[in-house]
């Protein structure tokens, strides 16, 4: 990963934090000042989806052409995505407690996020219970693809069918024009980009470490021989 990309990510995050706290925001009832949480809570959710998609991508690549490196990548992306997902759920709970009245409000999107987290927790349980490296990689790649496909209706279809407390309920699950005016987009999109980059950076560190660990294990094996 190039250094300038990292610096760009850091700058984007700094901008998002300053502008997110200081810029004018729409004055809306109920959410009041907490509308600013959009800048910090929503990027976690986007980051999670991005990282899980990357993990899915590497799992598919692995099944097409197995190699240890691809498995390490899929695993690391899933790991970081899980961290983002947990943070997204926790921040969402704080915000929900303030605006909807209780931390867990049975909102379809909230449930969808919780289930996505469950899927990847199951993914790591699965990885933990197989000893053979090659088999572990293959089975977890299969589960990753299968579980992701099973989550599609849960995350992208059910929220559209049922009423959601999130903005843009029914119809479009994203933000629509009235929920997010152009000033907020100016902060939200850079924040999402910034977190993508930071997430990718964290993942790349983890990938490096896992690779080195693997090389060390190989060296040990050679010594024993």
């Amino acid at each position: 990963m190039k250094t300038w990309i990292k610096i760009l990510g850091v700058l984007l995050l700094f901008y998002a934090h300053i502008a997110g706290l200081l810029m004018e925001v729409p004055r809306l009832n109920i959410v009041n000042e907490t509308i600013r949480a959009t800048y910090f809570h929503v990027p976690m959710w986007f980051g999670m989806v991005f990282l899980f998609l990357m993990s899915l991508y590497y799992s598919i690549l692995y099944l097409r052409k197995p190699s240890l490196e691809l498995d390490i990548k899929a695993e690391s992306f899933a790991h970081a995505g899980l961290a983002f997902g947990i943070l997204g759920i926790l921040t969402g709970m704080i915000w929900a407690n303030y605006t909807w009245g209780s931390p867990w409000h049975g909102d379809p999107k909230q449930n969808g996020a919780a289930i996505a987290t469950l899927v990847y927790l199951a993914y790591f349980v699965l990885r933990g219970s197989i000893d053979n490296m090659e088999q572990k990689a293959r089975l977890s790649a299969v589960y990753n693809i299968f579980a992701f496909a099973a989550m599609i209706p849960l995350i992208f279809i059910i929220p559209r069918l049922t009423d959601s407390l999130h903005p843009g309920n029914g119809g479009n699950p994203g933000f629509n024009m009235y929920d997010l005016d152009s000033r907020m987009r100016l902060v939200l999109y850079p924040a999402i980009m910034g977190w993508f980059i930071i997430g990718y950076w964290m993942v790349s560190l983890r990938i490096k470490l896992s690779k080195q660990l693997d090389i060390l294990l190989d060296l040990e094996d050679e010594k024993l021989k």
């Binding site: 289930i115 199951a122 349980v125």
Partner: peptide, 13 residues
């Protein structure tokens, strides 16, 4: 155990 753990998130939808 894994059968239950792995299948629940998929079955939910």
């Amino acid at each position: 155990i894994l059968m239950a753990v792995l299948s629940f998130p998929i079955i939910i939808s």
